[in-house]
Design a protein around this nucleic acid. Structure first.
Lengths: 117, 117
DNA sequence: CCGTATCCACAATGATACTG
DNA sequence: CAGTATCATTGTGGATACGG
């Protein structure tokens, strides 16, 4: 997740894409293709899996409009919105501590390298 | 992680075992085998990998005592301790919301089953 | 537009056995 | 006691192509 750089990091919300979906939906409903465009390289299969799992858990609703061309909107439920506070804590922790972690990694990797050389 | 039942759930700290290690070390240093015993079924390989990764990231220190039989102690650093607040938030969120998620799952699964039948 | 259907790659975890 | 070495398994995510 690049949304807050927790790629490097020990805290994740569910799978690889869930947190990102929450962020993209926090200001209102979005359509499938909108989400897809804003999420870097998600394949439709994986995005569908993510959204279905979140729907099953009651984090969002899926609304299908009977139009042509088809339109489907995804919207956070109250439960989905409640994740935002947790995401905020997580991002805050990461902002504060990521530099420390990166420094520790560099130090340890350098020490290992010195030992090997 | 059964420590707070986030198995079912969308928030995880790092990999499968990291959060548990933090909890086991929060009141002081522990030895390899102590950790292993308290952590259900971790194989020594996986526990070693977890501990080494955490050490590399500056979350804990590994202290080897020159005794026979060997003794090694793992202890959280300040950075490691800082994860506790995040864990607390996560567990609180889970305690509050897990029932809702489980209810949503039951409801959705039942609806699916009805549709299939 | 909004997906499904197949197949595949890889990382994470586990089982088992062995060692300084 | 505190690991290492190998191998097997699984599960998540991705590539690609196609369908209502």
């Amino acid at each position: 997740m690049e949304i807050c750089p927790s790629n490097a990091l020990p805290v994740r919300i569910g799978d690889k894409w869930t947190a990102w979906v929450v962020r993209l939906l926090e200001h209102g409903p979005r359509r499938f293709t909108e989400l897809r465009k804003d999420m870097g390289r998600v394949t439709p299969k994986v995005l569908t899996e993510t959204l279905r799992a979140m729907e099953r858990d009651g984090m969002l609703t899926r609304t299908e409009f009977d139009e042509i061309p088809p339109r489907v909107e995804y919207e956070l439920t109250e439960l989905g919105h409640s994740l935002r506070a947790l995401l905020d804590h997580t991002c805050a922790w990461t902002r504060e501590n990521l530099p420390l972690i990166e420094a520790a990694r560099r130090a340890n990797d350098e020490a290992d390298h010195a030992r090997t050389a």
